Amino acid sequence: MTILIADDDTDDRLFMDKALRQSGYTQNVQFVEDGEELMEYLRQEGRYNEENAPWPNLLILDLNMPRKNGFQALNEIKDDPKLRRLPVVVMTTSSADEDVLKTYNLGVNSFVTKPFNFNRLVEMVSALKTYWIDTVKLP
C-alpha cells in the first residue's frame, strides 16, 4: 500500500508523515511538492519510474500549490482513463463551500479541512487510514 501526498508546505508534509506513523500506518508514503510533480509521478515521467514511484492506493491532495494547483491536477487525474480510478482525498486549509463543491464536481472522493492542531490531525489521519486503507476495497 502506498499513500501519495501532494503538498507544497514542508511542515505540512512532515506533520502528515508523523501523523500517519502515529496512527499506525507503517507502509510506504511518497511526497510531491506541486501539481506538476504530482502528474509526473502518476505518469512516471521525468525522474519518476516504477522503482521510485510506486502506484499509490490513495492520493491526499492539497489545493493550494504552485505551478499546478490541486484543482487543475484533480481535473487532469479524473479526465485520464489510466488515472481516474485513483481515490483522491482533498486535504486543504480551505473550508469554503465553493471549493468543496468544485472538487466534488471534478470527482474528488473526499474533502477534509486540515486541522490546526497536531492531535486533531492524528485523529483525522487515523480516520482516513481506517476508512481508505483498512475498510474500503480499492482498485
Rank of each mutant, 00 (worst) to 15 (best):
M1G: 07
T2M: 03
I3T: 08
L4H: 12
D7F: 01
D7T: 04
T10P: 08
D11M: 14
D11Q: 14
D12Q: 09
R13E: 10
R13W: 03
L14R: 14
M16T: 12
D17C: 09
K18V: 09
L20D: 04
L20Q: 01
R21F: 01
S23Y: 05
S23L: 06
G24F: 03
G24C: 03
Y25R: 01
V29C: 09
V29W: 05
V29A: 04
V29I: 14
Q30Y: 04
Q30H: 08
F31A: 08
F31T: 06
V32R: 04
E33P: 06
E33R: 14
D34R: 08
E36Q: 14
E37G: 00
L38H: 10
L38I: 05
L38C: 07
E40D: 15
L42K: 06
Q44W: 11
E45M: 13
E45Y: 11
E45L: 14
E45P: 04
R47S: 15
N49M: 09
N49Y: 09
N49Q: 00
E51I: 15
E51L: 15
N52P: 13
N52W: 01
A53H: 05
A53K: 04
P54L: 13
W55A: 13
W55C: 08
P56G: 06
P56E: 09
N57K: 15
N57L: 11
L59R: 12
P66E: 01
P66R: 02
K68N: 01
K68S: 08
N69K: 05
G70T: 07
F71V: 04
F71K: 06
Q72W: 09
Q72G: 07
A73W: 01
E76W: 08
I77D: 00
I77T: 02
I77G: 03
K78P: 00
K78W: 05
K78S: 08
D79I: 07
D79V: 01
D79E: 12
D80T: 06
P81T: 08
L83Y: 05
R84N: 10
R85G: 10
R85S: 12
R85C: 05
P87D: 01
V88G: 02
V88H: 01
V90Y: 07
V90R: 01
M91H: 00
T92E: 07
T93E: 02
T93C: 10
S94A: 06
S95L: 11
A96S: 15
D99Q: 03
V100T: 03
V100P: 02
L101E: 13
L101R: 14
L101A: 13
K102S: 11
K102P: 05
N105I: 00
N105V: 01
G107D: 02
G107L: 03
N109K: 04
N109L: 04
T113W: 00
T113D: 06
K114N: 05
K114I: 12
P115T: 00
N117D: 14
F118C: 03
N119A: 12
V122S: 02
S126Y: 06
S126C: 10
L128V: 10
L128S: 01
L128G: 00
K129N: 14
T130V: 11
T130S: 14
Y131Q: 11
Y131W: 12
W132C: 08
I133M: 15
I133S: 11
D134N: 15
P139H: 14
P139Y: 13
P139G: 12
P139W: 14
